[in-house]
Simulated assay, not measured.
Amino acid sequence: MSLSFTRHLWEAAEPTYQAVLEHPFLAGLTDGTLPRRAFRHFVVQDSHYLRDYARALAVCAAKAYTEQDVRAFADDAVGAIVAEQEMHAEFMAALGSDAATAAAEPVLPTTRAYTSYLLATAHGGSFTEAVAAVLPCYWIYARVGEELLAKSSPDPLYARWIATYGDEAYQGVVRRVLALTDRLGEGLSEAERQRATEHFTTTARYEWMFWDAAWRGETWPV
């Protein structure tokens, strides 16, 4: 029996996911030792990221084949904006700052590279390619949430972040996108399958890079 398309994609990105789980940023979240400066870096850059991720999801909605998928991706785009405005505002307040301050801070190299790739793929590729590019953000966060939820964190702020992505409502959204991805995978040519896989593995790597950038306190070098 041939693999489902999502199983094929996950196997292609499995080494990257294992590297994500082993990253000291996530270890620091669960044991409470993550420096606040690293978490703040992540929250600020995630706010920038989600604005463009919402745009990429809106392009997916525009390219979707069915009204149901148009509505679903449009809702997800709105959800990304809500998360940026509400959840990150709460985190910034807990960190002694505010959303306006975060918005005024620069978009840093990894964030810029990741969102540029997402938007270029969503606009320039097929619907399947666009979905493959946005999928790791859905799926890796869901898997990380599942992994970390059992451990949670002694730090209430980090425990709140973990609970967001381990939540069953979020997991249900991800299952819906995975089901769509499997439907899209049916009947793809080998070339189309390879392009989608390349987009998926590339943005999965960007997910690792995003956490790593926060851990390193990445800035523009010049």
Rank of each mutant, 00 (worst) to 15 (best):
Y65K: 11
T30M: 12
Y53L: 15
V43A: 14
G28P: 12
Q45T: 07
T66M: 06
L50W: 02
A56D: 06
H48E: 01
F42A: 09
A56I: 13
A61Q: 02
D31F: 04
E14N: 14
F39D: 07
A64Q: 01
A19P: 03
Y65D: 04
P35F: 06
F42P: 02
A54H: 01
A56H: 09
R40T: 00
T16D: 13
R36W: 00
R51Q: 04
G28K: 05
L21P: 00
K63G: 10
L50P: 04
F39I: 01
R51L: 15
R37F: 02
L29S: 07
D52W: 11
T33Y: 10
E14Y: 05
L57A: 14
A56T: 11
R36M: 07
T30F: 00
T33S: 15
A27S: 14
R55E: 05
A27V: 03
L57H: 14
A13F: 08
T66K: 05
T33V: 13
R40P: 00
A58P: 07
L50H: 11
L57R: 12
Y49H: 06
V44W: 00
L26E: 03
Q45H: 06
Y65V: 04
L26P: 01
R37K: 12
D52Q: 15
V20M: 12
T16K: 13
L26S: 13
A38P: 05
E22C: 09
D52M: 11
A13T: 08
Y65P: 03
P15M: 07
A38V: 01
F25Y: 15
A27G: 15
E14P: 02
E67L: 15
V44I: 13
A38D: 06
L57Y: 14
R40C: 01
G28N: 08
L26D: 04
R51S: 06
D31P: 15
Q45C: 11
A61R: 06
G28R: 10
A61L: 09
G28Y: 13
T30Q: 10
L21I: 09
F42W: 08
H48C: 04
T16S: 05
Q18P: 08
D31M: 12
P35Q: 06
A62M: 02
V44T: 08
A13Y: 10
A58Y: 04
E22H: 05
D46K: 10
L50Q: 13
A19D: 07
R51V: 09
H48D: 06
T30L: 01
R37P: 01
A64I: 09
D52V: 14
H23Y: 13
V43C: 09
V59W: 02
L57I: 02
H41K: 03
F39V: 05
R55Q: 02
F42T: 04
F39Q: 03
R55W: 09
K63I: 07
A54K: 00
